[in-house]
C-alpha cells in the first residue's frame, strides 16, 4: 500500500533544512546523510549527497530524472564481484 498523499513525500527534516539553506546561499556543498529513505524533491536537483550505504558514503549527484526516487536507491548496499573462478 502506498503512502497517503496528504502527508506528502517523506524527507528527513534536516535534509530539507540543509538544502533550503544552501539554495538561499546558492552553494552546492555535498550533504552527508544516513537518510536513505528520503524522497528526492525537485529542490534537490543539482545537489550532491553523500549517502551512507552501511559502510561508506557514496557520492550521489541528483539529476532531474531522479526526482521521486529515494536517496538509498542510488547507493547500493551489496557488493557482488562475481562468482569464484576455479583455479588450479
Amino acid at each position: 500500500m502506498s503512502r497517503s498523499t496528504h502527508k506528502g513525500p517523506f524527507v528527513h527534516p534536516s535534509l530539507i533544512k540543509k538544502v533550503g539553506g544552501q539554495n538561499l546561499k546558492g552553494t552546492k556543498i555535498p550533504i552527508q546523510t544516513w537518510s536513505r529513505a528520503s524522497v528526492i524533491l525537485p529542490e534537490f536537483v543539482g545537489h550532491t549527497f553523500n549517502v551512507h550505504n552501511g559502510r561508506a558514503f557514496l557520492k550521489v549527484y541528483v539529476t532531474e530524472d531522479m526526482v521521486g526516487h529515494r536517496l538509498g536507491e542510488f547507493a547500493p548496499t551489496r557488493t557482488f564481484r562475481g562468482h569464484q573462478k576455479k583455479d588450479r
Binding site: T63, D65, M66, H69, G72, E73, F74, P76
Partner: peptide
C-alpha cells in the same frame, strides 16, 4: 530511464 540514472531498479 531507470538504467540511465543508476538506481537500484
Amino acid at each position: 530511464r531507470l538504467k540511465e540514472i543508476y538506481c537500484y531498479r
